[in-house]
């Protein structure tokens, strides 16, 4: 009799737990039992199996195509070269217009930034539809990267992050655009400074404060190759 009622309690408790009918306190207490009692675990597993078949009546629905990429980005970052380059699909036309872009940049001439000493690198980081344009100038002497945004504003509550892509390497972050500023100066590390000459600069849309993963997670908003002035 006692055994039976014990068993009944076990049956009911594990069912209530599987159904989520226990209060938070009861659930925690039950989990303590589960962690030490193999019979109770078996009881719970048996309910879980039975109850899961209640979902047999639910028809499968294909999730939107983009969701898988969102999930793998969240889990793995965008470290894979292939996926990053595919997001830069519009890079080629931009490179095609390179000569023109550089001339435009020089004419627009952030002359106040110009220095006489040593080589200077420039880039125009520009969105495909010109909704975002950033002029950048890199001085290898003090490794300063001076930038001026001449078009576009960040989305409210989001940050823009600047990336350097050297050859086939994964993009490395140079920093997050300071909130509310039109001009920004970043100091580039010595390691990255040496990659600047043949690099491409890109700006991505990120959660406030920048990418949580160390790789771009949002849309690539604008790109521009670095060239010697």
């Amino acid at each position: 009799m006692t055994d039976d009622s014990n068993t009944e309690d076990e049956i009911v408790l594990s069912a209530e737990y599987a159904l989520g009918l226990l209060t938070p306190g009861e659930a925690v207490a039950f989990e303590d039992v589960l962690s030490v009692d193999p019979e109770m675990r078996e009881q719970y597993a048996s309910w879980a199996e039975s109850l899961a078949t209640l979902t047999d009546e639910i028809a499968p629905v294909d999730p939107p195509k983009a969701l898988e990429a969102r999930i793998t980005d969240a889990l793995f970052g965008v470290s894979e070269k292939r996926s990053f380059l595919s997001r830069l699909g519009f890079l080629s036309p931009v490179l095609g217009g390179l000569a023109a872009a550089v001339i435009v940049l020089v004419v627009l001439g952030q002359t106040n930034f110009m220095r006489d000493d040593g080589p200077t690198y420039v880039a125009e980081i520009v969105a495909e539809d010109s909704s975002l344009i950033v002029q950048a100038q890199f001085n290898p002497e003090d490794r300063s990267l001076r930038m001026t945004r001449t078009a576009g504003v960040p989305i409210e509550g989001r940050s823009q992050e600047l990336w350097l892509i050297a050859g086939d390497a994964a993009p490395v972050s140079l920093g997050v655009w300071p909130q509310g500023q039109v001009e920004a100066v970043l100091e580039v590390s010595a390691e990255y400074a040496s990659l600047m000459a043949d690099g491409v600069l890109a700006i991505s849309d990120e959660p406030q404060g920048g990418s949580p993963t160390g790789a771009p997670t949002g849309d690539i908003l604008a790109v521009g190759p670095v060239t010697l002035l």
Partner: peptide, 24 residues
């Protein structure tokens, strides 16, 4: 006010063996 269920699936760590699996 129901209990959080997030951990429930982690806790069934019994290894019931083939027999119990067949019953399941």
């Amino acid at each position: 006010q129901g209990a959080g269920l997030e951990e429930a699936d982690d806790l069934a760590s019994a290894s019931p063996g083939p027999e119990a699996l067949a019953i399941a």
